[in-house]
Amino acid sequence: MQRKPTMNDVARQAGVALKTVSRYVNGDPTIGPDFAERIRLAIDELGYRRNMAAARIRPGQSAKMIGLIISDLSNPYFAALARAIELGAAESGYMLIIASSEDNGQRHDRLVDRLLEQQVDAIIDVPPRSPGRTWAQIPPPLPPLVFVDRPADFAADTVLADNAGGAHAATRALLDAGARSIAFVGDSVEIFTMGERLAGYRRAIEERGLRLDDAVVVDTAHTTDEAMRVVLDLLGRGHADAVFAANNRAAFGALRAFRLGETFLPLVGFDEFEAAALVNPPISVVTQDIAAMGRAAAGLVLARLAGDDSPFRTVVLPTSLMLRGSERLRPGI
């Protein structure tokens, strides 16, 4: 692993005293503009980052901290993923710092910078839907990096679920039960997982020789309320005879729409949610082993921290279809 540049390196590169660099890093406004510009250029060229944790670390020791950037901590899926990673990291004595990007590229960039300033030992990242800069644009050295749930255009270990396969199985189950116009309700297909689920849904329909109807494909359901409104609209127009809800929020929104519209369509969701087994009929879902995904991400990053320099790996975990009866039409819920 490449040695991280120090304040001494910056001082030598800029041709100034170490004390001057220290004053600049700590925001001293009295430094002359010539010295300030030389120091700024040296920092950019070397990729120096202020070590926020230095005062707490004895020489030769690490912070024993791993940064985790997820999409949305309020989403039960990401909360469960964070918990699994936290448990895996704790087994090796590492503390997890968790932050949410809200799928915003600029916020994600700020979080990355903050974690690097904190000198975390490694970063586990769920890449945002709308990326800002690329990881390749960040000056080296970078700590060990693992992508989870979604890939990124950067060479690093990656842990994914078989999203396309799970969506294909869910759509096929609805077709097997007699549906012919299945609505796809989900978040933006710019998100890797959503794009994969849409691909699996389309493949299942094409395999049956049915016409793909873009009028029932909706990728604007970012929240439960938006999913509810989408499904209410579908019910009102009568275009769909079944619903594939491409995430847990879409599934819950569909249930609310069914109650308000007093109509129940066959439904299969992607990802388990607490109410799925409590309604009548219980909701069929595609399940991911979130705990296994978290353990895999933690295991990969801990192996890199232990010196593993083998080629980067992409781990794709299988999904399972849990049929409970909602894929078939039944009266009432």
Rank of each mutant, 00 (worst) to 15 (best):
H168V: 01
T193F: 10
D225E: 15
D176L: 04
A161L: 12
S181K: 14
R208V: 15
A179E: 05
T193D: 11
A177Q: 02
E207V: 15
A183R: 06
D149M: 10
A221R: 00
R203D: 13
R197K: 02
G165P: 11
T171E: 04
A177L: 06
A161I: 07
Q137I: 12
V148L: 01
L142H: 12
G209T: 04
Q137Y: 12
R202L: 07
A199Q: 04
I205D: 07
F147S: 04
L174M: 01
V217F: 02
L210D: 02
E196D: 07
V218C: 06
D149Y: 12
D214V: 03
H222A: 03
E226Q: 15
P139W: 13
T223Y: 13
P140Q: 08
R129L: 12
E206Y: 15
T224N: 14
L175Y: 04
V148S: 09
P131C: 02
G200S: 02
T158V: 05
A177F: 14
Q137H: 14
R202C: 12
P128I: 08
D149G: 03
T171D: 11
I182N: 02
D157R: 00
D176S: 15
M194P: 00
A177W: 05
L145K: 00
D219G: 02
L160Y: 11
A227T: 01
R150K: 14
S130N: 15
D219M: 05
R180I: 06
V189N: 08
